[in-house]
Amino acid sequence: MLVCVKRVPTTGGKITLTPDEQEIDTRFSGWTVSPHEECAVEGAVRIVEAHGGTSTVLTLGPAAAEEQLRDALAVGVNDAVLLETDGSEWDPEETARAIAGAVAGLEADRGPFDLLLFGNEAADTADHQVGIRVAHALGRPCVAGAKALELRDGTAVVRREAPDGGWEVVEAPLPAVLTVKEGINLPRYPSVPGRIRAKKKEIHRVAPERTGGRVRKRRLVLPPERKEQAEILGHGPEAAPKVVEVLRSLGLVR
């Protein structure tokens, strides 16, 4: 199993931008990966627990992204690969090329991965394409948006959301690429021994070759905020009649 994650800021109640409008201001925030990717990591660990084998986590990002790799190691992923960049943004085409190249390199050493897992879309850029591009580069089938996964006789059986509600069932022969959505599982929390083990693990570093992208960020912009002030209906249970008035004004109670 190979699972790919991306380091992104943990934004909170309000986002502010850096003065050059190039980044989100992260002076007061931590870093994380998308919930989709947390579920992809959990999925990889569960498959190894059920079927044997090993799992590897990979990220393309700055040296500091080691933190996100160690988070994955702490919940049971076996080893980690960092495609180390200078921290500037790579577009989805060059990201996919670098990952596909790294996968080919790893597979030459240790044999093919049965599954490559990605998040359905990254939390920040939501490009919706890196997993699919990697699948094309490697000539493998790809299923996006997996919300349930079962492995049966060399086939991945996936359930995902259908366009107008309900579910659709899709199969892919292994080796395959899956992009995962939050809800496919409930990720575990790392244990203390898990954290200690993760700290000691060596991270395999590779310098990816930058091939040049064709989509470039010019600047970030915050959409206009709304200005009206909220009406305070009251404090505690005494506000209940006011709430009923509001509900009545909306035609929700008689």
């Binding site: 986002i15 931008l17 939501a126 064709r214 960020k217 010019r218 970030l220 912009v221």
Partner: peptide, 18 residues
């Protein structure tokens, strides 16, 4: 030149593509 959503639309990005 495109204006596109990031972070689910919390942030917009002006980007150029060739």
């Amino acid at each position: 030149v495109v204006l596109r959503q990031r972070w689910g639309g919390t942030v917009l990005e002006e980007a150029e593509a060739d």
